[in-house]
Structure formats: C-alpha cells, structure tokens
Amino acid sequence: MMVSLKNIKKSFGSQQVLNGVDLDIDVGEVVVILGPSGSGKTTLLRTINFLDPGDEGSVTVGEHTVNCKKHTRPEVLGLRRRTAMVFQNYNLFANKTILENVMEGLITVKRRPKPVAEEISRKMLTRVGLSERFDYYPSALSGGQQQRAGIARALVLEPDVILFDEPTSALDPELVGEVLQTIKGIAETGITMIVVTHEIAFAKEVASRVIYMQDGVIVEQGPPSEILVHPQDPRTQRFLRRITDPNQDPKHIDMKQDDPQPEQVVEAG
C-alpha cells in the first residue's frame, strides 16, 4: 500500500467538507478524482500533505503514518518529503529561475551538492520539454510552460506519490494538451499519482482508478471503463451527463443547485 487515508474528516468553520473518507492506493496506481465544485476533492488532496490538516483520521504514505488530530512538525515534514504536489496556479517560486525552482528541493531538502542538483534538474526540465528555458523566471513563461516546470519540480524529488491539484484548470484551452501529455508521460513510468481534474478524456485514457466524490464522501470508485461508462450511482450519472454537456463549464458544476439536500444547509460559495 502506498497511500492510505483512514476516516478523514475536515470542516471549515461550520461547513463539513470531508465526511470521513477512507482510501487505499497501491504502488503505481493512477487515481483520478472527479466531482463537482465543493465536493471536497481538492481538500482531500491537501489533507494528504497537510496543507489543510484533517480534523480527524490518519494519513499513511509508505510506512509513514500521521494522525490528523495530533501531529508533530517533524511528522508532517516527513509526510511532505514523501509526497510532492502540482498546483492549479503552478505556484512556481517567483524569485527563482525555472532551473532554480527544480533545484530548490534537491538542495534544501535532499541536501544534494549544487552541481549534482543542477545536473539532475537540467535533465528533468529537458524531459518535460523545457530545455530552452532554464534561466527564465516564471513570469516570462506561458502557463503551460510554468505548469510543466511545476511538474518537473515535483518529479525531481522522486516522491512516493505526486498529488495533482487541477493541474490544467488555470490554463488557456490551447495549452491544456501539452500539460496533459506531460502528465500522461509520467504516469507511464509507474509512479503513484493522485489527480484531481475535470478532464474526463484524460481520466479515461490514463487512470487506473476513477473516484467520484460529492459532499465530502466517496460516492463511487472503480476502473474508468466502469465508472465513466456505466456509473451505478444516480449522482455520478447526473454529474457525467452535465460534464459532457458542451454548454456547461466543467470547472463550475455545482450539483447542489438541482440536488437539494435538506440535512445540509450550506451557503453557496
């Protein structure tokens, strides 16, 4: 087992975002999490590396288990050093060049000597197609290039699992393809990945397992051929119908509008 989440609960103020999520992921799995906005999928991803610590439950990555309720700083650090994240808004270090961005973790966390870190980083950037851009600052690059650099920064640390948080949501439509292609290439190397996304076609092609989340729980999961083609739960069915509707912006599907649930009085937004 590579990643194991046990009974993760999380609320922001009075709003319960995660209602006890259990999830086990094997080595080499590519798990794609789908769900409407507000379903808790991004929060779930962020509880794994404790950017948003869960209120209850536990997170295990590799052999390293951390209790959400009581955790120490070294424990959290240990978790973060076994994981890496690719952010929706790239979050490249603005004061560092692309090359320095990739080197940063190697130097500060893995304590590699600078020349070694530089060599590894150059190779990694070349792999994601940025060999011409080593000394550019992030602000000089397109969104697609920045995101590929973000992927290189995550990959270079050789984490047990890479967490992708809507990696293509902030991109202009014409740049989505190059980033998805890069992620696909990485998935084929056998590294464990958890991807939160709205790209159904990508899920179909790359995922080994698809998870559908809504209202802070996992509604349904299984291989893409099942979940995406013959979903069992009516909620999954409705979501897939809407996301494949060409008039619907997949980033802003709010299932609560036509799916009133009396026990959950939650303000929109």
């Binding site: 590396n49 950017l51 700083r73 650090l77 973060r80 050093r81 994981t83 890496a84 994240m85 952010f87 808004n89 979050n91 490249l92 270090f93 603005a94 004061n95 560092k96 940063e104 973790g105 500060t108 966390v109 920064r153 995550a154 640390l157 967490l163």
Partner: peptide, 29 residues
C-alpha cells in the same frame, strides 16, 4: 501569494527554509 509558501512546504521545506529562501526575498523586493 500564499501559494509560494504552500509550494515550498509541498517540496518538503521547513517553514523557516520557506520563509528565508522563498517568502522573504520576494517580500523584500
């Protein structure tokens, strides 16, 4: 941007490392 700090944490940097190498230089500018 808070994302800068989160990104530093996500690669496994300590808060002090993140502040010293990422956040403070940007703030100083």
């Amino acid at each position: 941007n808070r994302g800068q700090l989160e990104a530093a944490w996500s690669v496994g940097m300590t808060t002090w490392q993140a502040m010293r190498r990422i956040v403070f230089p940007q703030a100083l500018a």
